[in-house]
């Protein structure tokens, strides 16, 4: 038996599972998307993304996702550099640090943010003690952005951290010897070498943050509708299976168009390996 054949054999249970529970369900949702409740072919459900309410939610989601992804990147790089500078690079410690919050219940974590950010909440309490003016961000898109950024930060941080920690100290020291300053080392050595991690972080954060309906529901007070909220309501409240599927499929199509730009460059396999 050749190793190629053996390889397929060992992968067989996984292939079976993926075809049965990933690919066929995707085929089912596609079928719903392109038919009306009576079974006739139609494009209306997929094109419904373009109407006023859905289109608006889509644009809001894009904006929220863009800001959250950017915030995650801006928070992650200084942290990775800080870890590198202080020689904390015990990967066990960083992983525990980032993954541990996930063991506090997800919905409770978001509710805790609600308590922190509410008008009479903990944040305003501290601001008052410090003699600063109160901030009123509860039930706004800003609160949603904080919640989503909080939720997805580890997914950005881990791949960037993995990519950066793979860079040998010798390389950065060589750059220094050749005259690069701290900024130069970052922009010309560390950043370019961390790109695969960055791209994989972006793919792990961008699309999910467009659809985190529970976060928008709890922190946005029903005022900020992400496309995820619209899709969820089509299924769970109005039982519009076809319309909901149509919207999901147009979201996927959008994803398929935008993702390869980033995934393609990150070399796929390297990508999300360490998450």
């Amino acid at each position: 038996m050749t190793s190629e054949k053996k390889g397929w054999g060992l992968s067989f249970p996984f292939i079976l599972w993926s075809v049965g529970f990933t690919l066929i369900p995707l085929a089912v949702i596609t079928r719903y998307a392109f038919t009306d409740p009576d079974g006739g072919l139609t494009l209306d459900n997929v094109l419904a993304m373009g109407n006023r309410i859905n289109g608006q939610a889509f644009l809001v989601s894009l904006l929220v996702a863009f800001i959250c992804t950017l915030l995650c990147v801006l928070l992650a790089y200084p942290m990775v550099m800080a870890i590198r500078r202080l020689n904390l690079s015990s990967s066990a410690f960083i992983l525990i640090f980032l993954i541990l919050p996930m063991w506090m219940n997800f919905i409770l974590r978001i509710l805790a943010w609600q308590m922190i950010l509410s008008d009479n909440g903990i944040l305003n309490h501290f601001l008052t003690i410090l003699g600063l003016p109160k901030v009123f961000i509860a039930n706004t898109w800003l609160a949603v952005i904080i919640g989503v950024t909080y939720d997805y930060f580890p997914y950005m941080m881990l791949p960037i951290y993995t990519a950066v920690s793979a860079i040998e100290k010798d390389i950065t020291e060589a750059a220094r010897d050749l005259g690069a300053g701290t900024l130069g080392v970052f922009t010309r050595v560390i950043f370019p070498l961390s790109l695969p991690g960055l791209f994989s972080g972006i793919t792990m954060v961008f699309v999910p943050s467009m659809t985190s309906f529970a976060v928008a529901d709890i922190l946005g007070g029903g005022k900020t509708q992400l496309i995820g909220n619209i899709i969820e309501q089509e299924f769970m409240r109005s039982s519009e299976m076809n319309l909901g599927s149509g919207l999901s499929i147009s979201l996927m199509i959008f994803m398929l168009i935008t993702l390869p730009v980033t995934v393609g460059r990150s070399g796929k396999e390297e990508g999300s390996r360490d998450i």
Binding site: F14, T22, S212
Partner: peptide
Amino acid sequence: SGRSVMMTLVNIPLLDADIVTGISMMLF
């Protein structure tokens, strides 16, 4: 080639939005 096909299969549930994974399985 086989490897890249398999890695695509591995990555689908990771890269798909939760909601799309959840709904497609619900319909299934």
